[in-house]
Amino acid sequence: MTAQTQLSSGAEDNDTASWGGLELLPGHPIMWVLILSELVVFGAFLLTFSGARVVDPQGFAQDQMQLDRLAGGINTLVLLTSGLFAVFAIQAVNTGNICRSRLWLVLASLGGAIFLIIKMIEYRAKFDAGIGLESSTFFTLYFLITGFHALHVVLGIGILMVVAIWPSRINVETGAAFWHMVDMVWVLVFPVIYLVR
């Protein structure tokens, strides 16, 4: 056995080693580690937002009235639909239909792009109204949380596009898992920031 083969074999052993149950979940276990850490970060953001609201409830309520709830709701529907397309991509790759899987992945990415366009329109309206990052605590947290989420959408689109180029079963499941995490975070962000007042 050559040194390179030994190295390769060792890497495979490590990859299939116990991940404490994460290896039982769809996709690569390392993606689940990432998903867990992202959820902790966004959970902390949402709890911080709720905590900051306690300090200045009137200010938060006043600022929240300037948010576009319709745009937030449309974005929720767009991401939910995009997540459904990612499920279809997994189903397609499981049945060996690679072309269809690619198509669903591209459509899921398209959903992400529509989400970003709506988000940009929302941000533009805020900037045009003279609202920025430093306008108030509410808007600092609003731009921080939704901006950080939008960055994940950008990353998710990139991952889905890469997976569409190499659509093996593990790749599609791993990419879709990240996309569903982005989707799941938004369904929590939307009510906390846009609706609760």
Binding site: G21, L22, L24, L25, P26, W32, L80, G83, L84, A86, V87, E173, A176, A177, H180, M181, D183, M184, V187, L188, F190, P191, V192, V196
Partner: peptide
């Protein structure tokens, strides 16, 4: 908030595939 959390739970269970086999996770 409950509706939001239920939606997130549905995504976890049916989109992410976090079924009963996932156990403590």
């Amino acid at each position: 908030v409950a509706v939001g959390c239920i939606k997130a739970a549905l995504i976890l269970r049916y989109y992410l595939g976090l079924g009963p086999a996932a156990g403590s996770w």
